[in-house]
Design a protein around this nucleic acid. Sequence first.
DNA 1: TTGCGGCCTTGACCCAGATCAATGCGGGGT
DNA 2: ACCCCGCATTGATCTGGGTCAAGGCCGCAA
Lengths: 245, 245
Amino acid sequence: MVSQLARPSVLDPQGGVDPCISCEARHISVCNAIADADLARLASIAVVTEGPAGRGFIDEGEPADYFFNLTAGSAKLFKLLPDGRRQITGFVGVGHFLGLAVSDTYAFSAEAIVPVRYCRFSRARLRKLLDDFPLMEKRLLEVAANELVAAQEQMLLLGRKTARERLASFLLLQSRQGLPCGHARRRFVLPMTRGDIADYLGLTIETVSRTLTRLRGERLIEVVSQNELVILNPPALVSLAGGQT
Amino acid sequence: MVSQLARPSVLDPQGGVDPCISCEARHISVCNAIADADLARLASIAVVTEGPAGRGFIDEGEPADYFFNLTAGSAKLFKLLPDGRRQITGFVGVGHFLGLAVSDTYAFSAEAIVPVRYCRFSRARLRKLLDDFPLMEKRLLEVAANELVAAQEQMLLLGRKTARERLASFLLLQSRQGLPCGHARRRFVLPMTRGDIADYLGLTIETVSRTLTRLRGERLIEVVSQNELVILNPPALVSLAGGQT
DNA sequence: TTGCGGCCTTGACCCAGATCAATGCGGGGT
DNA sequence: ACCCCGCATTGATCTGGGTCAAGGCCGCAA
């Protein structure tokens, strides 16, 4: 596969404003465990890269030399079977930390679904840095624990929920995307394609499409445009997602 | 549900041999991050409990006041839907650390599948102890990262593999259960019931049974007794698990 | 303006695995 | 020794979602 255009740039450690200071992702990412005074050190090992929608930047099976931190856009994480079957294990947004797996190769691939920007850290250097910032390690453990909970919820979905229940769960999840605690939007954008949704929910494109049509017919949702959507009846969707009905 | 018999006992901090020192699970659990000299402190906050097969000791939704460390036996972790559908998210063995989720309630339930013994730690006290033993926190992060990788693999299984592929993957996993790195047994015991296997693989009991029968007919495995089994053709099983054929 | 290429939707049909229904079997208690 | 009872197997049938096949819609390029 021919590599598409990318624009990496080492953050300038001497002179200029420390880019980590002004990073819009800092407050919601693990970097918020590092005090302003120490940010220069973090910046010195970060390489900022941008990529267009569709750009893959982690390949399952490749040597896992880097950690990543998304600072703009969103991406999908997935695993493939040799015959091309694909399971998307998650959609990640701004502030998300990638590559936690302690193994010498990546356990999944990652691909931008809209244009992205991310910080890349050499694994070895970040590990050394972590020794000096135990608070950041604590944050990473917190993040990992939360992802574990999400993964278990997804196993329940994939193993035991019907197509309708899967879509309801997914839409509710998206309506909370990137929002703190118990907040949710009624109207929101789905940046991924139907194919991505299908591969996330363990369904086919056709079933996703049909099920959305049906939910629309039942006035639970309204599909404003191909990728914008309104939840008309949140309580009904919640109970459907939880397995009632 | 009436609670069955249990035998908790606070480890005697003064006098007697430190029970953590002689704990047979120590070497493979996160406790190995703590030096012998400091083990007394760990022991002082541990409550050892035993329970029979079938005993539930974590209930999804209950306040998450404790961490657990299995020191004998094995258990299943699962989530339920209100109508009783169940997804087993994992089988855990000796040395496994439970309850990582950073939330005020447990995200899953746990139940012994054979008689178990475990150490119970108050969350608050263990957290305080972790501040003094960053090495243990590092180990926890490592453990969490590994579980995350396993969870992603399981999502691939649940979302995209056929019943045959799921069984093959499961049997290979069990053949490695509790063994270091790349080792595997050809002959091993499945301590869980067909129902548990079904709920782990997102199938029904009948499909598990039929699929095992079929794998037996194809001479890939031999079912010695209801819960003992031999892998006759490891390479074939591996390629089946990986999605070829 | 037209044509093309990605997506998405919709319909018709099919099949892997679920459901329903016996039957087998092994271990523990009396 | 016998009888349960819970688990496992096996068979018959059903069905949710997959597969195959047509269009439809929309943005973009020439």
